[in-house]
Amino acid sequence: MRVLVAGANGQLGRALQATAPEGVTVIAPPEANFDITDPVAITRAIADARPDMLVNAAAYTAVDRAEADSDTAQRINATAVHHLTTAAHTAGIGFTHVSTDFVFDGTAHSPYPTTAAPSPVSVYGRTKADGEAAAQAAHPQALIVRTAWVYAAAGNNFVHTMLRLMRERDEIRVVADQIGTPTHADGLARALWALLAADATGIHHWTDAGVTSWYDFAVAIHEEALALGLLTRAVPIVPIRTADYPTPARRPPYGVLDKTATWAITGPARHWRAELRDCLATIKQATP
């Protein structure tokens, strides 16, 4: 199997390359050689790579910046998905697209099923929902995988931000009334490979197991990092309300996804805290 990855330099793109199963060849061109907003460049990349599957791991994920930069967010999260999906369908190859819990408004009180209607409350969420619709319209056999709170050992993410702030500040304040599930990029990548091996299509949900708040996630990062020696001192972590930390974009207060159908294919995910521990251990190994 030959798989062409868009967004190869991102967290998930790197994880897909690192976890590729035996027998899978990953073609991961840099962004400069694979402009997903250019239909001609996409067609050329497919012709050069001759893949069986195109995986879109690229996205505009700057949630707050998207509120003032909606055109760019729309171009990357929706229009580019249309170009990618159309090119994949024309070439007769599969297409996999990664989406987000932000397509929902967060007013639910139980995990969102894959059949729930999107109801985004931010530009980022709206553009990602538009991308899903574009993929479904252009490629009837597209695989769409929604995930949430993705982080990795490298890149800009919540884990690295917390580690930096815990080293720099004497106190950390973190929102405690937004609920979801952290997702280690490596686990998500392995799940995608399992779904592809099963020829899965349609909408699926995947995150690590368990439920938490951003505050409790920060507390876990603090505890695990102290145990590993990534932090040399304890720092108080104070829970605050979303109202106490206003941002340009609204966040879904509840973003837990129902993974039941996906886990029936891939097997159940590990708990988010176990995945966090593995990620921090990798960071520790890379620390001079």
Rank of each mutant, 00 (worst) to 15 (best):
M1T: 04
R2V: 07
L4A: 06
Q11C: 13
Q11W: 09
L12H: 00
G13H: 08
A15V: 08
A18P: 02
A18H: 05
T19W: 00
A20F: 04
A20C: 09
E22W: 00
V26I: 14
A28N: 01
P29E: 05
P29Y: 08
P30G: 01
N33C: 10
F34A: 11
I36Y: 03
I36T: 05
I42H: 01
R44A: 08
A47E: 12
A47Q: 13
D48V: 15
D48K: 12
D48I: 13
R50A: 15
V55N: 01
N56Y: 02
A58E: 11
Y60Q: 09
D64S: 07
E67Q: 11
D69M: 09
A73V: 10
Q74L: 06
N77A: 07
A78K: 13
A78L: 03
V81N: 00
V81G: 09
H82C: 13
H82N: 12
T85N: 12
A88K: 13
A91W: 10
A91T: 01
G92A: 00
T96P: 02
D101H: 06
V103F: 03
F104L: 07
D105G: 13
G106S: 04
G106M: 03
G106Y: 07
P111S: 13
P111N: 03
Y112L: 12
Y112W: 13
T115C: 04
P118L: 11
P118Q: 08
P118R: 10
V123S: 10
G125V: 11
T127D: 04
K128Q: 09
D130S: 14
A133H: 11
A134I: 02
A135K: 05
A135V: 03
Q136A: 15
Q136N: 06
P140L: 05
Q141T: 07
I144N: 04
T147I: 02
A148P: 00
A148K: 00
Y151Q: 08
A152I: 00
A152H: 06
A153D: 06
N157R: 06
E168G: 08
A176R: 05
G180V: 03
G180Y: 06
T181E: 10
T181I: 10
P182C: 02
P182H: 00
L188F: 12
R190E: 15
L192Q: 04
W193A: 02
A198W: 14
I203Y: 11
A209Y: 09
V211G: 12
W214R: 11
W214Q: 15
W214L: 14
D216A: 15
F217L: 14
E223C: 05
E224Y: 08
L226H: 03
L228H: 04
G229A: 11
G229P: 03
L230P: 05
L231Y: 06
L231E: 07
T232G: 15
A234G: 12
A234M: 14
V235C: 09
V238T: 14
I240T: 02
I240L: 01
T242C: 05
Y245L: 10
Y245P: 01
P248R: 05
A249E: 07
A249M: 02
R250Q: 12
P253N: 02
Y254T: 03
Y254D: 07
Y254K: 00
K259Y: 11
T260Y: 08
T260L: 15
A261Y: 00
A261Q: 01
T262Y: 12
W263D: 15
H271K: 03
W272M: 03
R273Y: 06
R273I: 11
A274K: 13
D278T: 14
C279D: 11
I283C: 05
K284C: 07
A286G: 15
P288T: 00
P288V: 10
